[in-house]
Design a protein around this nucleic acid. Sequence first.
DNA 1: CTGAAAGCGCTTACAG
DNA 2: CTGAAAGCGCTTACAG
Lengths: 352, 352
Amino acid sequence: MATIYDVAAQAGVSIKTVSRVMNAEPNVRIETRERVQAAAAALDYHPSLSARSLAGSKSFIIAVIVDAKLTIDHWRSERGSDYLARVQFGATLPCREAGYHLLIELIDHGKAMVRRELDTLLAALKPDGVILTPPSADDDVVLDRLRRAGTPYVRLGPGRRDGGGMSLRLNDRAAARAMTQYLISLGHRRIGFIEGDRRYASSRARRDGFLAAMAAEGLEAKWIHAGDFTYQSGYDGGQAILKRASRPSAIFASNDDMALGCIAAAADLGLQTPGDVSVAGFDDSSGSRFSRPQLTTLRQPIVEMAELAARALLSGSVRPDCNEDGGQGLPNFTLVPRLSTAPPAARKMPRP
Amino acid sequence: MATIYDVAAQAGVSIKTVSRVMNAEPNVRIETRERVQAAAAALDYHPSLSARSLAGSKSFIIAVIVDAKLTIDHWRSERGSDYLARVQFGATLPCREAGYHLLIELIDHGKAMVRRELDTLLAALKPDGVILTPPSADDDVVLDRLRRAGTPYVRLGPGRRDGGGMSLRLNDRAAARAMTQYLISLGHRRIGFIEGDRRYASSRARRDGFLAAMAAEGLEAKWIHAGDFTYQSGYDGGQAILKRASRPSAIFASNDDMALGCIAAAADLGLQTPGDVSVAGFDDSSGSRFSRPQLTTLRQPIVEMAELAARALLSGSVRPDCNEDGGQGLPNFTLVPRLSTAPPAARKMPRP
DNA sequence: CTGAAAGCGCTTACAG
DNA sequence: CTGAAAGCGCTTACAG
């Protein structure tokens, strides 16, 4: 394979000049530039990433950090949870345009592992930027190691405001509140809630939004189940809630996987959705669109967030030692009403 | 950040010895080894990938090549087509265990672009192995550049037998034949077929399997539509086939996306699935499981294939200049009967 | 079992 | 506008 020396020799210049041309730096006579470009093309020369990375200050790598357990669970279950795919979609294209490579890195969020895995990653790869997904975005160890390494990072959907870097936050609380209000507007007054994993800030925010909407209408939140974002926990939550003597006419699950599990639980108890119980989800996963019945859910602009994150990192505007909220330009959530929710059956309406 | 020199100094040895310890090479006294390990741990030392890659013969990178247009289309449509996710799932874990990084690279399969993009990729990254998905797996330019670079590669679902490297092939023909026979066994004799993109070998094989099964029963294959694996082409195919005066009682689409499009087309024409027309797909995508009705489809062991591909590459057993079929240990396809297929309505049965 | 030397292919910092 | 020198942090090939 041709190296910078071959190109320099062929063009009759020094390697420094070839370097200037390849990096589109100024101060090269147009004629020289063209000679170098011709030589590079003739020799089919492409600079080595590792050499550039070792000698210079850039690695041309952006890493996306995801939780290993959760990601593997989603891959294994094939339930159409496409959070990671959306992040890849949003971040891949800007990286590609800039000649960067996007690396998906799974890390274990156990106290002991996270530090070792992250340090290895940062030292080995020296990524020019890191995109943090929940729960990494709020993980003390992750944030500390990143800051120590001086690596710019963008946090997706973080809870903490003081985590450094740039944050891209969706208003989970407002979204959950809107969904709850939607259920109330359909006539529901007895509404259950299935929580997500509490390690996730978004999970807590969704719960808060639900509780706020209920309180605003003077409704009691009596059916709350602690799930963990998995289908199974949604199923368990649905069973637990719907087996009670007094059961709600609607259930709001903190994500689509759990909502689908909840619908299955209802069906196993002989309850139809939405005839006997309405069920709403959160995420607008592809599974939600193809479920039976199609799921009423909330869509958040994950692709746009990831794209914004990548662009911010690529532009060099993110500094690890600041706290920047970059979510201004982001589109808002959208409530997507579909067929899993309906007004409660008349006989089940409590009297006013 | 600590370098190999720091560790060497701290342990009182040469950098060569540190290198030996870090790479688990033999010929280091146990006592020396422990001293080096202690020093490395104390200094939080992790070797630099770019330095290792530049000096040595390994890059610790495995690249997956996918078609840019197709991948972006799948990401954008969010229709639960999880081929890439399955490949990632299968290949990520072995890479991780081996300290390797998996890179997903989109390339454009236009004649002009593919060579430039691939050469840049190979020269810049020097991946230790490449996993080729369709249609790259049969692309002359891709195969030529890979061989020229001496990069080991595994081809997933290739058509050509002479493409070099290792091939992992699924029996698309037998699978399509089995599905067609299944439809026939339900009582269908008038069966339509929607083809996938003909650039894909699997697409041609599926068509062959369909035709073979029909011919074996002495049935005419009169309703064939040329699709391209997209939902829209399935919709168009469904419309075209079902609008004809004489229409089939079942349609077999070459993938799930097209099958879903076909069902939508039927619905728009006032035809129920499976009441008026049975529809079968291919892939067992997550969308197929959540569709309404759930799709009868074929599952192929993509995750297992990708895992096998990664392991073969990591073990160093793949050579670019041979033609190896590595699919022996792979599980077979499975026909997944679900609710989108049923016996034809009595009045539509042709007389024997 | 251990180490000194050379070199991988670039960029940096500087000189002219 | 151009280039000579040094160095990034490792592995390779060799010597002992």
